[in-house]
Simulated assay, not measured.
Amino acid sequence: MEQFLIVDGYNMIGAWPQLQMLRDVSLEEARDRLIDMLAEYQAFSGVKVVLVFDAYQVPGLGKEYRQNRLRVLYTKEKETADELIERLVTELIARRRQIYVATSDMMEQHVIFGLGAFRLTASELLTRIRQGRKEIQHKIKRPALPERNTLDSRIDPSLLAKLEKMRRGE
């Protein structure tokens, strides 16, 4: 089943402690760090991630680009992130698809749930990202050792004992 995750970008930046501190220094750096985190999550989870940033007060037609294989959208002038998220959910809802929306905005959670999507709070998404990182680290630290395919592992133990006696000259 195909899975999509639509993320309210500024909502995550405002809710995740690491990004809050970074935002206070540079909003652009906080956005870039969020993009990196979600690109990593997309890579190990297989979920297609769409990141939405609100450009409500910014004149223009909106913007869409890909960064690290992650789809990043900025809203159009006078369009909120919530409106764009709702439109995306409506477009993506189909059989054999699961749509998740990550936002801590309670009103938006109710709306997208009514449209048929699942909701994730900012803290739930952060927990999933951290768990994924732990799994990756665990796999990196403990590479699977190949099973040894030795001759003595395939020989009957009694025959192996006889061969060992012959080798010793007994």
Rank of each mutant, 00 (worst) to 15 (best):
I35A: 14
R142S: 09
R168K: 14
E79K: 02
R167F: 10
V89G: 02
L120T: 00
G9Y: 05
T90D: 13
D24E: 15
L22F: 08
A161H: 12
E2V: 09
L145G: 08
V25A: 09
K139C: 05
L22T: 08
L125R: 05
F44I: 14
P17D: 15
P17N: 13
N68E: 15
Y74W: 13
S104M: 00
A30M: 12
K162V: 11
R71E: 14
R33W: 05
K76S: 13
Q18V: 10
E135T: 07
R31H: 10
P143L: 06
Q20L: 12
L92T: 03
L115M: 05
E164K: 12
E124W: 04
Q131V: 11
D152V: 10
F53D: 09
R95V: 12
V7I: 08
L160F: 07
M12V: 06
M21L: 14
G169Y: 01
K165M: 09
I136P: 00
R119I: 03
L145N: 08
R31V: 05
W16A: 04
A43M: 12
P157G: 06
F113S: 15
V111K: 01
I13E: 04
F44W: 15
N68W: 08
R31I: 07
L70T: 01
A94M: 07
D152K: 08
R97W: 09
F113L: 13
E28H: 06
A81D: 04
L70I: 09
E2D: 14
L19Q: 02
G9C: 09
S123L: 11
S158L: 13
T121R: 03
A161P: 00
E108S: 02
E86F: 02
G132R: 02
V49K: 04
G14Y: 09
N11M: 05
E170T: 07
Q67F: 09
Q42E: 14
D8Y: 03
M166E: 14
S153D: 12
Q3F: 03
R97M: 10
M1Y: 06
L125S: 05
Y41R: 04
L151K: 04
Q67N: 13
T75H: 02
R154Q: 12
A117V: 00
V72W: 01
R95D: 14
L34T: 01
L92N: 01
S104C: 06
M37Q: 11
K134D: 10
D152W: 10
Y10P: 04
E147Q: 11
L61W: 07
V25I: 14
Q57D: 11
T150C: 06
L61Y: 08
E170L: 11
A30N: 08
P143C: 08
L92P: 02
K162Q: 12
T80Q: 04
Q57F: 09
D32I: 01
F44V: 15
E147D: 11
I129E: 01
V72Q: 07
S104R: 10
A144H: 07
Y10G: 06
T90I: 11
I99Y: 04
A122L: 07
S104K: 11
L151F: 12
Q67C: 05
R148G: 04
S153F: 05
R23S: 12
A30I: 03
L163H: 02
F44H: 13
I129P: 02
D82R: 03
A15M: 03
